[in-house]
Amino acid sequence: MRREPLLNAAVFLGLLAVVLWARATDEPFTITLATRVAILALAGVGLNLALGLGGLVSLGHAVFFGIGGYAMGILASHAQSYSPLIEWPVLIEGTKSMPVIWLVAMAASGLAALGIGALSLRTSGVYFIMITLAFGQMFYYFAISWPAYGGEDGLSIYVRNGFPGLNTLDPIQFFAICYVILGLALWLFSRLSRSAFGLALGAARQNGERVMAVGIAPYRLRLVAFALSGVITGLAGALFADLNRFVSPTMFSWQTSGEIMVFVILGGVARLFGPVVGAAVFILLEHVLGGLSEFWHIYLGAVLLVVVLFARGGIIGLIAGREVRHD
């Protein structure tokens, strides 16, 4: 039963192979598609931490995705118009530097996740789903009605932000950045799921009463998981905005939350590479079926239905079988 690590490696290297092949045959659009997969997978890894490990069914992860996107949009738009973000009490300028934007995106989405988590984790089940959805809608309508940063029209950034030593305008170099970050996030996820925190979080998902009876408070575990989850999804949002050189309130919409959840469920909830496989299949379907019919979401729905009904571990579960890890 060592099939899953092999499958994971194949998926991860497969994504790289597609990009190298696209470069060799000069197909920049395919590289862009693969970059989308990497970024959306990253957002999914974030959600998988809350949903898969923690059992927290959040329908509000677009909040963090959007905050990451707007962190990039706001900082870069100030930089490109040479207007400071804040003049008083301290002068804060915009920036076109990716690492700075990422840090701001992660800090802002992490703080938002702490706040939202602190309130919504007092509920559970369907109430938790509804309250996270409500937060998502709050941010969505706020973004729409905030004229300073484009309101409904969103914000365009003319030139992609920079990374020291790299030419981010070259599709393959930008892909490399996203690919490495995805790899690091997967590594973090895999370490986390095997750590003391991961054990307790997983046990709290399966049986909260048991965890309390051994003297561990599930609320704190879940709050930390939710915050970390928000940080990763927020980083994905910043990269996504940079890929499109555009942010709009759509990033905050509940459809975005739903899509991130679809990646995770399609690929396999709680499986390390679930979001990667899910995002890849999603983009592939969007690309292939989207060319055939405007209503490709119907087919996506059918695929999702089949996966949910017949493959409880998602596509990964279908191929690699039930998760086994008893060391």
Binding site: R191, L192, R194, S195, A196, F197, G198, L199, A200, I216, R220, L221, V224, D327
Partner: peptide, 9 residues
């Protein structure tokens, strides 16, 4: 419990 890196097993 808040140990995130080392393999607990």
């Amino acid at each position: 419990v808040m140990r995130f890196w080392r393999d607990v097993m």
